[in-house]
């Protein structure tokens, strides 16, 4: 690779190229990027094995995995929404006060007084709704492609837990603005969940930290929303991704309908 640049001749290279190749030769740059831009087999593998995050992927994938119409990237986009929510959520936490009625006024001040506050609150809200939709669509995709079978059995079960966690993370966040929408949507929601046979009253009291939605409920749901549920979701996501890596992608060579092992039996 290094010989490539020299062969082009020194007269032709512009200022940018010279600065760039100097930058690439510095000790700092080479300590961060341990191989040159990946153009051959060896460096294409190295770029994955040398990187913690890219290491989630295998070095090679079947050519059917790169057809985006197979997965529509829904699992990856679920992760993307989770990361966006964690980042915008941390920004919201700088200003949010989990108390009654300060919560409401801190949100209103966040919209008007904080630079880009309104934008980041919008992003947090729409990303949260999007995450619920994307996680659901991901589940539908995995079911309809039969990707829960064989070695991936238990990963499907982990996925069902992650789906429930997504709903709970969204639902606990719903109360936090402490406006009329939040308060009454949570009232209805808790009434739905509090209808557990025999222990319904106890469940309601645990959920509400009392008999009504109060400041104590807000603190409890805030804690669940910002640390407890995301932490559990984070660990389950690690398990989920590890199993995807170990079990392999499910995209395979499409089987022509007439040769299909199952449809082959069908007389039409």
């Amino acid at each position: 690779m290094a010989g490539n640049g020299e062969a082009k001749g020194s007269q032709q290279t512009g200022l940018f190229d010279r600065v760039w190749s100097w930058l690439k030769s510095t000790e700092l740059f080479r300590s961060i990027y341990q191989n040159d831009y990946p153009r051959d087999r060896r460096t294409r593998v190295m770029v994955l094995t040398n990187n913690l995050f890219l290491h989630l992927h295998p070095n090679l994938v079947t050519r059917y995995s790169i057809d985006y119409r197979y997965t529509w990237g829904l699992g990856g986009l679920s992760l993307a929404t989770f990361i966006i929510l964690a980042l915008t959520g941390a920004f919201l936490m700088f200003y949010y006060v989990p108390a009654v009625p300060d919560a409401y006024f801190s949100i209103r001040a966040f919209d008007t007084d904080v630079a880009l506050g309104q934008f980041f609150r919008n992003l947090h809200r729409w990303a949260a709704h999007t995450m619920v939709i994307v996680v659901m669509l991901h589940m539908f995709r995995v079911f309809y492609t039969g990707s829960y079978k064989g070695p991936r059995k238990f990963n499907w079960v982990i996925g069902v837990f992650l789906y429930m966690l997504t709903l709970l993370m969204s639902f606990t966040g719903y109360l936090l603005p402490w406006d009329q929408l939040a308060y009454w949507a949570i009232t209805v929601g808790v009434n739905i969940g509090g209808a557990v046979p025999f222990v319904g009253d106890q469940v309601r009291r645990i959920l509400l930290a009392g008999f009504d939605i109060t400041g104590a409920t807000l603190v409890r749901w805030y804690t669940l929303h910002v640390i407890f549920l995301p932490l559990i979701a984070f660990w389950m996501m690690l398990l989920h991704f590890y199993r995807v890596r170990k079990d392999g992608f499910s995209a395979t060579k499409p089987i022509p309908i007439e040769d299909h092992p199952i449809l082959g039996k069908v007389k039409e």
Binding site: L48, P58, N59, I66, K253
Partner: peptide, 9 residues
């Protein structure tokens, strides 16, 4: 049937 993850995937 296999391609390199970088860059294709």
């Amino acid at each position: 049937d296999r391609v390199y993850t970088w860059p294709h995937f």
